[in-house]
C-alpha cells in the first residue's frame, strides 16, 4: 500500500452544470501504473466528471477537492492542468477549421515543452506515432476533426495522448464509433502508452474496450454517485446483467482501492 504513488485523486467531488448538480460526491484515487474504469448508464454524470476535472468552465466543481501528483488542480486553468500532466480524450472532439492536425499538435507540444524548447524532433515523433496508430499521413495536413468520421476523431485523440505523454489520461467513450479493427488499434495505442509511471481512467458505457484494455478496478456510476467498485470481473457482470441490478445502497460510499 505505502509504495503506491497517487497520481490523480479526488475526494467528495460535486459538479454543477447549468445550475444542476450532476455529480454528487465522488471519491477516487488513481495510482501510478493503474487503470481504472468508470462505467455507467447514459446521463449518470461520467462526462461531466471528466470535463470538470479537466477544467471546463461550464462544469463547476462546487464541493470537494482534486489533486494531480499531490497538487490541487482546482485553481488551475485547463491549460495549466494539461501542462501539469492531465489529459482528457473527448467524447465529442471539436472541429477547428483551418488548423491542421500537425500545426495544432506542434503548438500543443510546444506549449508543454516551453516556448523556446527545441522542436526539431517533432516531425519524426509525430510520424512514428501516426504510423503506430495506423493513421494515414494525409491527416497531418487535414484540418483538425473537420469532416472526420467518429472513429477518425477517436484515433486522433489517442494520437494527441501519445504525443503529450500525460501522467493521467481520462478517456471518455473512446471506444464509441469504432469498428472492431479500429477498436483494436486504439486499444493497442492505449496499452503502449500505459506504464508504471502513468495512470488511466477509462470512462465508458460499454465494456467492449475493456476486453482489450484491462482495468485494475471498475467503478459503477449512477445518478452522479459511484455506487459500486470491484475488479475487472465487475465489468463482465455489468455486460451480462446491465446496470439495473446495481442499486444505490452503497450510495456515497468511499471507494477503497
Amino acid at each position: 500500500m505505502s509504495d503506491k504513488k497517487p497520481l490523480l485523486s479526488f475526494n467528495d467531488v460535486h459538479v454543477e452544470v447549468e445550475g444542476k448538480e450532476v455529480v454528487r460526491g465522488v471519491t477516487l484515487t488513481i495510482n501510478a501504473g493503474e487503470t481504472h474504469a468508470i462505467m455507467g448508464p447514459n446521463g449518470s454524470g461520467k462526462s461531466s466528471l471528466s470535463q470538470a476535472l479537466m477544467g471546463h468552465p461550464s462544469y463547476a466543481i462546487t464541493r470537494g477537492e482534486a489533486f494531480l501528483k499531490g497538487e490541487s488542480i482546482l485553481d488551475m486553468d485547463p491549460d495549466e492542468r494539461s501542462r501539469a500532466g492531465l489529459f482528457l480524450a473527448f467524447q465529442y472532439p471539436l472541429a477547428i477549421p483551418g488548423v491542421t492536425v500537425a500545426n495544432f499538435m506542434r503548438s500543443a507540444l510546444q506549449s508543454h515543452r516551453g516556448k523556446d524548447a527545441d522542436m526539431s524532433d517533432f516531425r519524426k515523433l509525430f510520424k512514428a506515432e501516426m504510423n503506430a496508430l495506423g493513421i494515414d499521413h494525409v491527416f497531418a495536413t487535414r484540418y483538425l476533426n473537420e469532416g472526420f468520421s467518429g472513429g477518425e476523431k477517436k484515433r486522433i485523440e489517442i494520437l494527441q495522448m501519445a504525443m503529450l505523454q500525460p501522467s493521467v489520461a481520462i478517456l471518455d467513450e473512446t471506444d464509441s464509433g469504432l469498428d472492431i479493427d479500429a477498436l483494436k488499434t486504439v486499444a493497442e495505442g492505449i496499452n503502449r502508452f500505459h506504464n508504471d509511471n502513468n495512470g488511466i481512467l477509462l470512462v465508458t458505457h460499454y465494456q467492449r474496450l475493456l476486453n482489450y484494455v484491462k482495468p485494475d478496478y471498475v467503478h459503477v456510476m449512477k445518478a452522479g454517485h459511484l455506487v459500486k467498485s470491484g475488479g475487472p470481473e465487475l465489468a463482465l457482470e455489468l455486460e451480462d446483467r446491465g446496470y439495473d441490478w446495481v442499486v444505490g445502497e452503497e450510495e456515497n460510499q468511499k471507494v477503497e482501492v
Binding site: 477544467g55 471546463h56 485547463p78 491549460d79 494539461s82 501542462r83 482528457l88 473527448f90 495544432f104
Partner: peptide
Amino acid sequence: FYLTSRGLTE
C-alpha cells in the same frame, strides 16, 4: 476549451 485542454494558453 478543447485547445486549452491540450496545453495551449487561452
